[in-house]
C-alpha cells in the first residue's frame, strides 16, 4: 500500500496526464455520438426506418472492442483517430435509442397543442420535444459514458491516448515491482473517473428535469 502511494507520488504527473487524456477521449466520443445521434433520432423517431437505424447501431455495439479498433486502423492509421471513432460508434446505440425512446414517449397532445399554437415543426422539436426528452437522453449519455470509460483503455493498444497506456506499461514491466502499481493506477483511475462521471450525470439529470415534471 505504502509502496503504491510512494510510487504514485513519483509519477503523479504522468497519471494526471493520462487521466486527462482519457477524459478528453471519452468526451470526444460522446460528443460526436450526440452530434450525429440526436439529429438522426429527430429524423427517424416517427419513421419506420428507426428500427433499421437501431439495428445497425446495435451491430456496432456487438462488435468486440479490440476488433473494432483493429478495423479502424486500416482507414485511419494508429493513434487518437481510430480511438475516437470507435468510441463514437459504441456510444451510438445508447444515445440514439434513448433519444428515440424519449421523443416517442412524449404525450402527443402536448405536441398537437404546440402545433395548434402555431409553432413550426422545427420549433416544436427544439422548444418542446427535445427539452421534454432531455432526462431520458441524459440517461442514455450516462450509460454510454460508463461503457466508453472502460473501452477507452483499449485505445492504448492502437497507440491511442489515455489510462490504458499505464495498464499496458504495467504489463510490459511484468515481474518488476512497478508492474502492479502501474496497472493499479490505470484501473483505479478509470474506476474513479466512472464514479465522477456518474455523479456529474446525476446532477445534470436533476438540473434538466423541468420542475413540475414527474421524473421519467
Amino acid at each position: 500500500m505504502t509502496g503504491f502511494l510512494d510510487y504514485t507520488s513519483g509519477n503523479v504527473d504522468a497519471l494526471l496526464q493520462a487521466t486527462l487524456e482519457h477524459t478528453v477521449l471519452v468526451l470526444q466520443g460522446l460528443g460526436l455520438a450526440v452530434l450525429i445521434g440526436l439529429p438522426l433520432a429527430a429524423l427517424t423517431y416517427r419513421a419506420r426506418s428507426r428500427t433499421a437505424v437501431l439495428a445497425v447501431a446495435g451491430v456496432f455495439l456487438t462488435i468486440p472492442s479490440y476488433a473494432l479498433f483493429g478495423l479502424l486502423i486500416t482507414p485511419l492509421g494508429l493513434g487518437t483517430a481510430p480511438s475516437v471513432v470507435a468510441l463514437t460508434l459504441y456510444a451510438f446505440l445508447p444515445v440514439l435509442r434513448n433519444a428515440i425512446v424519449g421523443l416517442r414517449e412524449i404525450d402527443p397532445a402536448v405536441v398537437e397543442s404546440a402545433r395548434g399554437m402555431g409553432l413550426s415543426r422545427l420549433q416544436v422539436l427544439l422548444r418542446v420535444e427535445l427539452p421534454l426528452a432531455l432526462p431520458v437522453i441524459i440517461t442514455g449519455l450516462r450509460v454510454a459514458a460508463q461503457m466508453l470509460l472502460g473501452i477507452a483503455a483499449i485505445a492504448a493498444a492502437v497507440n491511442g491516448p489515455g489510462l490504458g497506456n499505464l495498464i499496458l506499461q504495467g504489463l510490459s514491466s511484468a515481474g518488476t515491482p512497478f508492474a502492479v502499481y502501474l496497472t493499479l493506477q490505470g484501473v483505479l483511475g478509470i474506476i474513479v473517473l466512472a464514479i465522477l462521471f456518474d455523479l456529474l450525470f446525476a446532477a445534470l439529470n436533476r438540473l434538466t428535469t423541468s420542475r413540475g415534471m414527474i421524473h421519467v
Binding site: L171, A174, T183, L184, G186, V187, I191
Partner: peptide, 20 residues
C-alpha cells in the same frame, strides 16, 4: 456493479502482473 466499472483489459493485466 463497481466491478463492472473496472476495464476488462485492466482486470486481465492486473491478474497477470499480480498472479505471475
Amino acid at each position: 456493479n463497481i466491478g463492472q466499472a473496472t476495464p476488462t483489459l485492466g482486470l486481465i493485466v492486473l491478474f497477470a502482473v499480480v498472479f505471475v
